[in-house]
Amino acid sequence: MGKMVTIANETSSVDAYLSEPAGTPKGGLIVIHEVWGLVEHTKDVADRFAAAGYVVLAPSLLADTGMTPELAAELQVTLFDPEQRSIAQPKLREIMAPLHAPAFAARTTASLQACFEYLYGLPGVDGKVAVTGFCLGGTYSFSLATQEPRLRAAVPFYGHADLSVEQLRKIACPVLAFYGEQDAALVDKLPEQQKQMAEAGVEFTPVVYPATGHAFFNDTNRWTFNSEAADDSWRRTLGFLDEAMTAEG
Rank of each mutant, 00 (worst) to 15 (best):
D231T: 11
D162W: 00
V155R: 01
A51C: 13
Q167N: 05
E181Q: 13
M197D: 03
W36E: 07
A103R: 13
E83C: 08
F104C: 06
F104V: 03
T78V: 15
L112Y: 01
Q89W: 06
A50P: 00
P98E: 10
P123N: 12
L144Q: 11
L18A: 12
G53N: 10
P69Y: 14
V165Y: 09
P174W: 05
L151K: 01
F225L: 03
D44W: 08
E166Y: 06
G2Y: 05
G27F: 00
Q89L: 15
A154I: 02
Q182K: 09
K128C: 02
F134T: 08
A211N: 15
A185P: 00
T212I: 08
E192Y: 01
V39L: 05
T24M: 09
T24I: 12
M197T: 09
Q193D: 10
E228N: 15
A8H: 09
E228Y: 15
A185M: 04
T68F: 13
S19Q: 08
V125R: 04
D126S: 12
M197W: 13
V5G: 05
A161F: 04
D162V: 10
E40G: 09
L176R: 02
E34I: 03
E181Y: 09
A63D: 11
D81T: 12
P82M: 08
A184W: 05
V187F: 10
T132K: 04
V31C: 11
L144E: 07
L168K: 08
V39C: 10
D126A: 10
P25W: 01
H214C: 12
D188E: 13
A153G: 01
F80A: 05
A244Q: 03
I95E: 08
Q182V: 06
G28C: 09
N226C: 02
G201C: 00
P123K: 10
T237F: 11
R152K: 09
F134L: 15
L122S: 02
A51R: 14
Y179C: 00
N9P: 06
A114F: 03
L119H: 05
F142Y: 15
H160S: 07
E10C: 07
D47C: 10
L151T: 07
E117M: 08
C115S: 11
E243K: 03
